[in-house]
Design a protein around this nucleic acid. Structure first.
Lengths: 359, 359
DNA sequence: TTGAAAGCGATACCAC
DNA sequence: GTGGTATCGCTTTCAA
């Protein structure tokens, strides 16, 4: 027999595990596969198929519970309607929200996401992204932590003709990207602190691996200079995106002869470590040291010991712009811009306090 | 020409966007597809292919950057090595960790995950799971919030011969599942409170939709009875898994003529709302009311105003057992058990305090 | 309106 | 060691 997998064993019953195929439906209806296909794909009108035929097919589809095999469909059509997505770990709110927004936006356009496990296993980033390509995704949204080292990977993806856009932070110049305006975010934070009367403002780096981090640093330094404030080498610390390391770094800063009175942190997680360090020293936030975080990433932050003032990045816009850009690329249009920078907004809570000194 | 998609345009160059196919490699090597396939799938040894041939093929694969098309492979082999996963939203730590552990465990066995968007869009659960099946997943890990209403869906999946196991909470009896022992978790919490001297112990339900929630309630009630404590109707509240609603519910309980001195909450999120309510009333935690949460779900909980005592569910074991069970099913073995119940552990922090009354 | 035929890119079995 | 042939389930083009 030619189609044993869809063989009909008994009237109204398909053999266990064997699923109805389009061909089986066609046979049952006494029609050709094409006709069934046209009905299934809702192009029976323009193909001029009789209402009668349409109904007959639909009835059989319902009766035998036929569902098209997406694998076969994708292979034949050369299109999977799948978008490969690789984001940083989404334990906290920011990336989780970005992921959700991407999902929602792509769904509206008939695409679904394939998530790279690399979200957790950073060393596997390159491999995971390649694997995504092997699954014939129609496009990629990328936010690799090791982005700057992956030049050859991006070339490789381009060669395969798979469009991709970076999200959150550019990995390398000359590629499509929708990113946070880290430089202006830093300015937002630092100018807020300056406005409150602070002059000894520290900055806690997160990781060194992204261009975004560099821009943030640049924004911090430039803002200080623009306001005629001195840059202290000792006010630049490293938190490695980690609570404990940030705590240690802050402890060291507090030991300086002239410790900072305010600090801007590259991530909320780090800001929490910083606050913990300050409180552990018997000092108060914001009275002794003011703290600003980045991302507004922590759930129920209002319930913390010191609700954190922070910079929130525009999750919705980030996702929606990236989706539009990638869809443009996939569908052969030229995106209006190749690089979109989105500024964040300052969310003022308690960790900064009011004016430092009544003039 | 028979294989235009892989046509070689110029020596060393493939036409834009057209990716090398296995057939192209074979032609280049002057071999048959079978041979190339055997090399690619690492079964050249047993197929008795010359080292020389092997090397030649490998070299061409490298040169032309050939990578097998997983879609085609899956279609032909009737196996995708994809596991469909549908979990509750993973904004907090518990489900995020479960997801990660599932991913890691399946990867070790050569599978990857396809995540249902339903994690966020609960009303779409059924649809999303069906869609997952359409993509020919080899198996499913499910944790639907509306599970109890989805009987026909599960029948449908079974009919298609796709094995699945529930995780976290059973949706319906008689299916494979790896679940939290909610009844014993409730006992753990309530007995801890009783041990501390509490007699007026409340319980805040999360949602009504899962069997797990029912079991937790049962555990709470049974434990009270076992210890000869009276059950107050007014001590049963609903938090709907939501901070604000839990806050309101607690506020109402505090207005009782005889308010509870302790409360066990079905989720950490809810416990935070409860604590906020208590503090808002000018009362103290744990001095006036002791609080126990469920899940140990909140990041940096130690930094909250009142670090929460809670029950942590075994994330790693949950995932690993589910993976083993599903793999057994997929590979035709019979799982040792069809229902695995995993008890949680009490994580004692500050929201419970010490003995309520010195004997 | 409908159907036949040729792919899509692989796997699998079986002779040579 | 190697190659032919059938197949997976669907799309697409072109004739009838």
């Amino acid at each position: 027999m030619k189609y044993p997998r869809s063989e009909i064993v008994q009237a109204g019953t398909m053999r266990q595990e064997k699923v109805t195929s389009m061909h089986a439906v066609a046979k049952l209806a006494g029609l050709s596969r094409t006709t069934v296909s046209d009905v299934v794909n809702n192009r029976w009108r323009e193909k001029g198929i009789t209402r009668h035929t349409y109904d007959r097919v639909q009835k059989l589809i319902a009766k035998y519970n036929y569902r098209p095999n997406m694998l076969a469909r994708s292979l034949a059509a050369g299109k999977t309607y799948t978008i490969g997505v690789q984001l940083p770990s989404s334990m906290y709110e920011h990336w989780n929200a970005v992921h959700k927004n991407l999902d929602a936006a792509f769904r509206r356009h008939g695409y679904h996401l394939a998530l790279a496990s690399a979200s957790w296993f950073h060393d596997a980033e390159e491999d995971e992204i390649r694997r995504l390509c092997d699954r014939q995704v129609d496009g990629l949204i990328l936010s690799p932590q090791n982005g700057m080292r992956l030049h050859s990977l991006f070339k490789w993806i381009q060669q395969r003709g798979i469009p991709f856009v970076f999200i959150g932070s550019v990995s390398l110049p000359h590629y499509f990207a929708v990113v946070d305006d880290n430089s202006s975010n830093a300015r937002l934070a630092v100018e807020h602190l300056i406005r409150l009367g602070h002059e000894r403002i520290a900055y806690l780096h997160s990781t060194s691996r992204t261009l975004g981090e560099r821009e943030r640093r640049r924004g911090y330094l430039q803002t200080l200079r623009d306001h005629g404030l001195r840059v202290h080498r000792e006010y630049l610390g490293w938190g490695y995106h980690d609570f404990d390391q940030s705590r240690q770094a802050m402890l060291r800063m507090l030991d300086l002869s002239e410790p900072p009175t305010a600090i801007y942190c590259g991530a909320d997680t780090m800001a929490l470590g910083v606050i913990d360090a300050i409180l552990a020293r018997g000092m108060r936030v914001p009275d002794d040291v003011a703290v600003v975080g980045q991302a507004d990433d922590i759930a129920f932050i209002s319930q913390y010991r010191v609700p954190l003032t922070t910079i929130r990045q525009p999750r919705q816009q980030l996702a929606e712009n990236a989706v539009r850009m990638l869809l443009d690329l996939i569908e052969g249009r030229t995106p209006a811009q190749s690089l979109i920078r989105l500024p964040g907004e300052l969310i003022i809570r308690d960790s900064c306090g009011g004016l430092k000194q009544a003039r």
